[in-house]
Nucleic acid binder design. Structure first.
Lengths: 222, 222
DNA sequence: CTTTTTTTTCACACAAACTTCATAAATGCA
DNA sequence: TGCATTTATGAAGTTTGTGTGAAAAAAAAG
């Protein structure tokens, strides 16, 4: 899961802790130590999610939040020292996506970020990895914004792989799942489809890995 | 995102509510009002995800779940009335993918389903010891986060060792288990495979101990 | 019905893995 | 220590599995 995270907190220590955990999750991390700084970074970057400390000098969290929501709809997780603050925030009736009181567990925070990213948000029925986009509903595959033509079987195959990332799948299993349990054809047919699919995947051809004596695997290094 | 969902709940009302939301997400929906019915439907259809009410008459959720996991690996979201039930479920140490307490928000449920479908899903089936990780599903071995290439036989061998930790295994037993009872080859072939496996295990080569005049043993000091 | 596309089969070449074997090293025991 | 037994290792030869292209068969489109 690719996430561009902005941490807005005036305390360097807290920023550093969150950053460390976030980098570990392979998130891209930006930092801001006050609201003004934050708005500037939001303007220039395409932020996916914000972690915001509500208590800040210069421009306080509430003001920042109001300003933010006027122009953006970026999911925000709020950090606060006191749980009473929550009511105050609720009063805003603003789009707070989640709330954590300090001291908080960084692991918990990461989980919440991922949950938010997973939820509603971003394109629903699409799979994307770098410049490869598979639109399940539209039934199209795009590489570098250029549509790639694949046959129906190839699309099915890729769809199944995407649904079963990082799992080695036997030819037999593929036959059963994609051709049906009542199909009795040659195992090696799959090899040919794999060949065609790989060719069509171009630079992403080696996302499909051969697992010798087992079958194939769609591998996404996360 | 195309999802084939099976709702297992004895209450028609709940099934209807979930179904309505699911259909709205363009999911394909199947229903079962008890475990027996559910297993039948699972057998005949290619279910992607299950929503299971743990409290059911006839075949209760736990029994159903155990039976299910014997033959299938379908991600399951469990519904329960009381949050204390959670502990009970944890006791099972089974592959529950998510958990919701009643009353739950259908929107939340849909989000969770999508999340599960999106993420590689499937419970992680891994063995790890220090920096050695064996991913059975992905069919990979990792040492210090670096993938190590092993041959199919070596992987089988290691898998067998892991499943029989701290037990001395004779060459004959290995031949029978991994090569099949109908195989009649040289005992010493195993030595060669062990050699290769040890080499590939690098700093973990000593986990495979030689048991003189018996065979080998995969020893984990714990 | 004809043409085009897709699917399936198949065989060959090549690479990877497996097995065997001879020899060296080590282990245990008298 | 010396001897017998067992295991480790390296280097063959053998077998197996996969990639690929071509062509037949089937399905879809025109």
């Amino acid at each position: 899961m690719y996430v561009k995270l902005l941490i807005v907190d005036d305390e360097q220590l807290i920023r550093d802790v969150i950053k460390e955990y976030a980098l570990n999750e392979k998130f891209e991390v930006l930092e801001a130590e006050n609201g003004i700084d934050a708005l500037e970074k939001i303007d220039k970057n395409n932020i996916d999610v914000i972690v915001l400390d509500i208590m800040m000098p210069k421009m306080d969290g509430y003001t920042f939040f109001k300003t933010l929501k006027k122009d953006y709809n970026i999911p925000t997780i709020v950090l606060s020292a006191r749980s009473e603050e929550y009511d105050k925030l609720l009063g805003f009736e603003l789009g707070i996506d989640d709330y954590l009181t300090k001291p908080f567990s960084p692991k918990e925070l990461m989980a919440r970020i991922k949950a938010i990213m997973r939820r509603g948000n971003r394109q629903e029925d699409k799979f994307s990895y770098e410049d490869l986009v598979v639109d399940f509903m539209g039934h199209t595959i795009t590489i570098d914004n250029k549509e790639v033509n694949v046959t129906p079987k190839e699309f099915e195959l890729l769809t199944y792989f995407i649904k079963n990332q990082n799992v080695a799948i036997s030819r037999e299993a593929l036959l059963n799942k994609l051709w049906g349990y009542d199909y009795f054809g040659d195992d090696r047919t799959i090899d040919t489809h794999i060949k065609m699919l790989r060719n069509n995947l171009g630079k992403y051809r080696n996302l499909i890995k051969t697992v010798r004596s087992i079958g194939y695997k769609f591998e996404i290094k996360s």
